[in-house]
């Protein structure tokens, strides 16, 4: 089953091949610097997006793209569960793809819905977010979501990141 999440302003859904151009705009931009290698190419971005789509087939869950319900074609970002092989734990991730979407609480609203989704629909008992140590905006969002650094948690090999651990939401305990 594929979830479609709706919040007050946003719709979150499974990514489709037709979302590729918007993803590539983000991937090639400086905004993506914390979630990719330093020198992006369209070839790398294409493969990364194919992997995001394929993750759904392998795991049965994955990253959800989101947009304002009044402009569903204009994707604002992605958020959701992520479980690659080789990582110490399953992650709740988020990326905000457009600068003009910042400062409006969109990422918070989307990530809150994704956080509730992993605890409620997927039955996770805990969730972490791996935030690049230089990414202050993302760290602030993690804290606003109620997550706190877990200095005892392992980090994925090769990532310079802080592990934020999310409390299980009230009402789901």
């Amino acid at each position: 089953m594929t979830p479609v999440l709706e919040t007050e302003r946003l719709i979150l859904r499974r990514p489709e091949a037709s979302d590729l151009p918007v993803w590539l705009d983000f991937f090639m931009s400086d905004r993506a610097r914390y979630v990719r290698t330093p020198e992006p190419t369209r070839a790398l971005g294409w493969r990364a997006f194919a992997a995001i789509i394929g993750h759904w087939a392998i795991r049965g869950f994955g990253s959800l793209v989101f947009a304002d319900k009044t402009a569903p074609e204009a994707l604002l970002g992605a958020t959701g569960p992520w479980e690659p092989e080789g990582w110490p734990e399953r992650e709740l991730g988020w990326t905000l793809w457009r600068e003009e979407a910042e400062g409006k609480g969109y990422a918070f609203e989307a990530a809150s819905a994704a956080r509730d989704h992993v605890f409620r629909d997927l039955g996770w008992e805990t969730a972490v977010s791996y935030v690049d140590a230089r990414n202050a905006r993302s760290a602030r969002l993690a804290e606003r979501l109620g997550a706190r650094p877990d200095w005892s948690a392992k980090t994925p090999d090769g990532l310079q990141c802080v592990v934020f651990r999310h409390p299980k939401p009230e009402g789901l305990r």
Binding site: I53, G54, I58, E85, P156
Partner: peptide
Amino acid sequence: GRADAFRNFCALIGHWRMR
């Protein structure tokens, strides 16, 4: 390594949907 293998394997399946 395993992490790259996983990403490649996901992309293998994603390719079907992309193309």
